[in-house]
Amino acid sequence: MSDKNTQEKLQKALAAVHAETPPAFAEVWAAAERQNETSRKRYAGFVAVAAAIVVGVTAFGLWSANEVEMTDEFLIADALMNSTQWSAPSDLLMPEYRFDIYQDIPLLMESTELQEGSLL
């Protein structure tokens, strides 16, 4: 049996056993386009949500890093303010720490007597 003969027989058998009535191309194509569009939008939505999450996490990361820096700056400023109250290291050598030895004005000896034209 030739190939041509077999081909004819099989094609006839297939057509007789399984009727092939294809749906209209335009319908299937339109449905496919709709499905493609839906899945494309879904994918775009997913990408948008993922991008928003990434942006959010990055922004939060940057903000929190900035927050730490500002705190550091504040601490430095506070330290500078404190540095305006200065005490000399030699204060530690005083009899009583931070106690001014000259609490009273010392009394000076006064005299009205003159000696060789000058007050004693």
């Binding site: 009535t21 749906p23 299937v28 194509w29 449905a31 496919a32 386009e33 499905q35 493609n36 899945s39 494309r40």
Partner: peptide
């Protein structure tokens, strides 16, 4: 028939996308 139509549609989606 119905499954074949669905299969065709999926095939076209694969090509379209």
């Amino acid at each position: 028939q119905a499954t074949a139509e669905d299969l065709m549609q999926q095939a076209y989606v694969e090509v379209l996308s």
